[in-house]
Simulated assay, not measured.
Amino acid sequence: MARIAIDMDNVMADLTAHMIHLYEQKHGVRVTRESLNGHPDGGGFPIEGETLKFIHEEGFFRSLPVMPDSQEVIKSLMDKHEVFIVSAATEFPLSLKEKIDWLGEHFPYISWRNVVLCGSKTIIEADYMIDDHDKNLRYFKGERLLFTAPHNILLNDYKRVNNWQEVAEYFQLTPALVK
Protein backbone atom coordinates (compact mmCIF):
# COMPACT_ATOMS: atom_id res chain seq x y z
CA MET A 1 0.00 0.00 0.00
CA ALA A 2 1.56 3.27 -1.14
CA ARG A 3 1.19 6.59 0.68
CA ILE A 4 -0.06 9.38 -1.60
CA ALA A 5 0.01 13.07 -0.66
CA ILE A 6 -2.47 15.18 -2.63
CA ASP A 7 -2.53 18.97 -2.77
CA MET A 8 -5.84 20.85 -2.69
CA ASP A 9 -5.62 24.15 -4.63
CA ASN A 10 -5.46 23.68 -8.41
CA VAL A 11 -5.41 19.91 -7.88
CA MET A 12 -8.63 18.97 -6.04
CA ALA A 13 -10.13 22.47 -6.15
CA ASP A 14 -10.16 24.58 -9.30
CA LEU A 15 -8.61 27.76 -7.93
CA THR A 16 -7.88 29.11 -11.41
CA ALA A 17 -11.52 28.81 -12.56
CA HIS A 18 -12.62 30.51 -9.36
CA MET A 19 -10.21 33.43 -9.89
CA ILE A 20 -11.39 33.80 -13.50
CA HIS A 21 -15.01 33.86 -12.33
CA LEU A 22 -14.40 36.38 -9.52
CA TYR A 23 -12.34 38.63 -11.80
CA GLU A 24 -15.14 38.66 -14.37
CA GLN A 25 -17.71 39.43 -11.66
CA LYS A 26 -15.65 42.33 -10.32
CA HIS A 27 -14.33 43.83 -13.56
CA GLY A 28 -16.68 42.57 -16.30
CA VAL A 29 -13.76 41.09 -18.22
CA ARG A 30 -13.63 37.39 -19.09
CA VAL A 31 -10.11 35.95 -19.06
CA THR A 32 -9.41 32.54 -20.61
CA ARG A 33 -7.46 29.86 -18.80
CA GLU A 34 -5.11 29.62 -21.79
CA SER A 35 -4.24 33.33 -21.56
CA LEU A 36 -2.87 32.67 -18.06
CA ASN A 37 -0.40 30.01 -19.28
CA GLY A 38 3.16 30.72 -18.23
CA HIS A 39 2.25 33.47 -15.75
CA PRO A 40 2.96 33.11 -12.02
CA ASP A 41 0.12 31.71 -9.90
CA GLY A 42 -2.64 34.35 -9.88
CA GLY A 43 -0.88 36.37 -12.61
CA GLY A 44 -1.78 37.12 -16.20
CA PHE A 45 -4.96 39.05 -15.48
CA PRO A 46 -5.35 42.56 -16.97
CA ILE A 47 -4.96 44.14 -13.52
CA GLU A 48 -1.87 42.40 -12.13
CA GLY A 49 -2.11 41.33 -8.49
CA GLU A 50 -5.88 41.80 -8.36
CA THR A 51 -6.71 38.11 -8.02
CA LEU A 52 -4.20 37.64 -5.21
CA LYS A 53 -6.45 39.89 -3.13
CA PHE A 54 -9.25 37.35 -3.52
CA ILE A 55 -7.41 34.66 -1.57
CA HIS A 56 -7.37 36.90 1.50
CA GLU A 57 -11.14 37.38 1.44
CA GLU A 58 -13.42 35.39 3.70
CA GLY A 59 -15.27 32.66 1.82
CA PHE A 60 -12.79 32.36 -1.06
CA PHE A 61 -11.51 28.87 -0.23
CA ARG A 62 -14.93 27.63 0.90
CA SER A 63 -16.49 28.32 -2.50
CA LEU A 64 -13.89 26.75 -4.81
CA PRO A 65 -15.28 24.46 -7.52
CA VAL A 66 -14.27 20.79 -7.42
CA MET A 67 -11.92 19.53 -10.14
CA PRO A 68 -13.72 17.15 -12.51
CA ASP A 69 -13.39 13.46 -11.57
CA SER A 70 -11.32 14.20 -8.44
CA GLN A 71 -13.97 12.88 -6.04
CA GLU A 72 -14.30 9.50 -7.75
CA VAL A 73 -10.59 9.02 -8.41
CA ILE A 74 -9.53 9.96 -4.88
CA LYS A 75 -12.15 7.61 -3.42
CA SER A 76 -10.76 4.80 -5.59
CA LEU A 77 -7.19 5.67 -4.60
CA MET A 78 -8.22 5.38 -0.95
CA ASP A 79 -9.47 1.83 -1.57
CA LYS A 80 -5.94 0.75 -2.54
CA HIS A 81 -3.60 3.28 -0.92
CA GLU A 82 -3.04 5.47 2.11
CA VAL A 83 -4.09 8.96 0.98
CA PHE A 84 -3.35 12.24 2.73
CA ILE A 85 -4.60 15.64 1.67
CA VAL A 86 -1.73 18.08 2.14
CA SER A 87 -2.16 21.83 1.84
CA ALA A 88 0.29 24.63 2.63
CA ALA A 89 -2.64 26.51 4.13
CA THR A 90 -1.15 28.39 7.05
CA GLU A 91 0.03 31.17 4.72
CA PHE A 92 -3.66 32.10 4.45
CA PRO A 93 -5.12 31.80 7.97
CA LEU A 94 -8.71 32.34 6.78
CA SER A 95 -8.35 29.24 4.62
CA LEU A 96 -7.87 26.76 7.48
CA LYS A 97 -11.50 26.30 8.54
CA GLU A 98 -12.75 26.90 5.01
CA LYS A 99 -10.58 24.09 3.62
CA ILE A 100 -11.75 21.68 6.34
CA ASP A 101 -15.39 22.59 5.65
CA TRP A 102 -14.86 22.32 1.87
CA LEU A 103 -13.36 18.84 2.26
CA GLY A 104 -16.25 17.80 4.53
CA GLU A 105 -18.77 18.85 1.91
CA HIS A 106 -17.09 17.54 -1.24
CA PHE A 107 -14.95 14.66 0.11
CA PRO A 108 -16.85 13.44 3.20
CA TYR A 109 -15.10 10.05 3.05
CA ILE A 110 -11.71 11.64 3.88
CA SER A 111 -11.08 11.47 7.62
CA TRP A 112 -9.70 14.46 9.51
CA ARG A 113 -6.79 12.13 10.35
CA ASN A 114 -5.81 12.22 6.67
CA VAL A 115 -5.65 16.00 6.33
CA VAL A 116 -2.40 17.91 6.82
CA LEU A 117 -2.56 21.71 6.83
CA CYS A 118 0.97 23.03 7.05
CA GLY A 119 3.27 25.87 6.07
CA SER A 120 5.99 23.97 4.24
CA LYS A 121 5.52 20.64 2.52
CA THR A 122 9.19 19.76 2.97
CA ILE A 123 8.11 17.80 6.07
CA ILE A 124 5.88 15.48 4.05
CA GLU A 125 7.04 11.91 3.58
CA ALA A 126 5.10 9.75 1.18
CA ASP A 127 5.64 7.54 -1.83
CA TYR A 128 3.88 9.96 -4.21
CA MET A 129 2.95 13.63 -4.19
CA ILE A 130 0.43 15.15 -6.59
CA ASP A 131 0.89 18.93 -6.60
CA ASP A 132 0.79 21.90 -8.98
CA HIS A 133 3.79 23.75 -7.52
CA ASP A 134 7.47 23.18 -8.16
CA LYS A 135 8.25 24.64 -4.70
CA ASN A 136 6.39 21.72 -3.12
CA LEU A 137 7.68 18.97 -5.42
CA ARG A 138 11.31 20.11 -5.63
CA TYR A 139 12.36 18.73 -2.23
CA PHE A 140 9.97 15.80 -2.11
CA LYS A 141 11.83 12.48 -1.94
CA GLY A 142 9.15 10.24 -3.48
CA GLU A 143 7.59 10.08 -6.96
CA ARG A 144 6.53 13.59 -7.99
CA LEU A 145 3.46 14.17 -10.15
CA LEU A 146 2.93 17.69 -11.43
CA PHE A 147 -0.76 18.48 -11.84
CA THR A 148 -1.16 20.87 -14.77
CA ALA A 149 -2.10 24.46 -13.99
CA PRO A 150 -1.49 27.62 -16.03
CA HIS A 151 1.40 28.74 -13.82
CA ASN A 152 3.34 25.46 -14.34
CA ILE A 153 2.68 24.87 -18.03
CA LEU A 154 6.32 25.58 -18.95
CA LEU A 155 7.83 23.17 -16.38
CA ASN A 156 9.27 19.93 -17.72
CA ASP A 157 11.07 18.60 -14.64
CA TYR A 158 8.36 16.19 -13.45
CA LYS A 159 5.96 13.52 -14.60
CA ARG A 160 2.90 15.57 -15.59
CA VAL A 161 -0.75 14.67 -15.10
CA ASN A 162 -3.24 16.95 -16.85
CA ASN A 163 -6.43 15.83 -15.11
CA TRP A 164 -7.85 13.25 -12.72
CA GLN A 165 -8.46 10.70 -15.48
CA GLU A 166 -4.69 10.69 -16.09
CA VAL A 167 -4.15 10.19 -12.35
CA ALA A 168 -6.51 7.19 -12.51
CA GLU A 169 -4.54 5.78 -15.45
CA TYR A 170 -1.19 6.39 -13.72
CA PHE A 171 -2.31 4.43 -10.64
CA GLN A 172 -4.03 1.79 -12.80
CA LEU A 173 -7.46 2.24 -11.29
CA THR A 174 -10.48 0.38 -12.57
CA PRO A 175 -11.36 1.02 -16.24
CA ALA A 176 -14.75 2.41 -15.15
CA LEU A 177 -12.95 5.53 -13.90
CA VAL A 178 -11.12 6.08 -17.15
CA LYS A 179 -13.25 7.72 -19.83
Rank of each mutant, 00 (worst) to 15 (best):
Met67His: 03
Pro65Ile: 01
Met67Phe: 01
Ile124Pro: 03
Thr16Lys: 06
Arg33Val: 06
Gly142Phe: 09
Thr90Leu: 08
Val11His: 08
Asn156Gly: 15
Val83His: 00
Leu145Arg: 08
Glu125Arg: 11
Gly119Thr: 14
His39Ile: 04
Leu96Thr: 12
Lys135Asp: 13
Thr51Asp: 11
Ile110Val: 03
Gln25Glu: 15
Ile100Val: 14
Pro175His: 07
Gly142Asn: 12
Glu98Val: 00
Ile47Val: 11
His18Cys: 13
Asn163Met: 09
Gln165Asn: 08
His106Leu: 05
Val29Ser: 04
Asp7Glu: 11
Asp9Ser: 11
Arg33Ala: 03
Arg30Gly: 01
Asp134Pro: 02
Phe92Leu: 10
Val11Arg: 06
Gly42Met: 11
Asp101Pro: 09
Leu154Ala: 13
Val83Pro: 01
Pro46Arg: 05
Glu34Val: 03
Glu57Gln: 15
Asp131His: 02
Asn156Ser: 14
Trp164Met: 12
Glu82Thr: 01
Ile85Ser: 00
Ser120Asp: 15
Gly43Ser: 09
Lys141Val: 10
Tyr170Asp: 08
Gly44Thr: 12
Tyr158Trp: 09
Val161Tyr: 10
Asn163Val: 06
Pro46Tyr: 07
Asp41Cys: 13
Phe107Val: 01
Thr148His: 03
Asp134Asn: 10
Glu98Gly: 11
Phe92Ser: 03
Glu91Ile: 10
Pro68Gly: 03
Leu137Ile: 05
Phe60Arg: 02
Thr32Glu: 07
Arg138Lys: 15
His106Gln: 08
Leu155Gln: 13
Ala88Pro: 00
Ser70Lys: 00
Phe54Gly: 08
Ala2Tyr: 14
Glu143Leu: 07
Ala168Gln: 11
Glu24His: 14
Glu82Ala: 00
Ser95Lys: 05
Tyr23Ile: 13
Ala5Phe: 07
Thr174Lys: 13
Pro65Glu: 02
Trp164Cys: 10
Thr148Ile: 06
Ser35Gly: 05
Leu137Tyr: 06
Ala88Tyr: 02
Asn10Phe: 07
Leu117Phe: 06
Asp14Phe: 06
His39Cys: 14
Glu82Arg: 05
Glu166Gln: 15
Thr16Asn: 12
Val167Gly: 04
Gln165Pro: 01
Ala168Cys: 11
Leu22Gly: 08
Ser35Tyr: 04
Tyr128Glu: 05
Pro93Thr: 02
Tyr139Ala: 11
Tyr139Leu: 12
Arg3Gly: 03
Arg33His: 10
Phe84Arg: 06
Ile100Cys: 07
Phe92Tyr: 11
Gly28Pro: 04
His133Ser: 15
Lys179Trp: 09
Asp157Ile: 07
Tyr139Asn: 15
Met67Lys: 02
Tyr109His: 06
Phe171His: 03
Leu77Lys: 00
Asp132Val: 04
Tyr170Thr: 05
Pro93Ile: 01
Thr148Arg: 14
Glu50Ser: 12
His81Leu: 00
Arg160Val: 15
Asp101Glu: 15
Glu24Thr: 10
Val178His: 10
Arg33Gln: 08
Arg144Met: 07
Lys80Gly: 02
Ala126Tyr: 00
Phe107Ser: 02
Lys159Pro: 07
Asn114His: 15
Asp7Asn: 15
Glu24Pro: 02
Gly38Phe: 06
Val73Ile: 06
Pro68Lys: 03
Gln172Ala: 11
Thr32Leu: 01
Leu64Ala: 01
Asn162Lys: 14
Phe171Gln: 09
Glu57Ala: 04
Leu36Pro: 11
Phe171Tyr: 09
Met78Asn: 01
Ser76Ala: 13
Ile85Thr: 02
Phe45Tyr: 14
Arg62Leu: 09
Val73Thr: 05
Phe60Lys: 05
Thr90Asp: 05
Gln71Ser: 06
Leu137His: 05
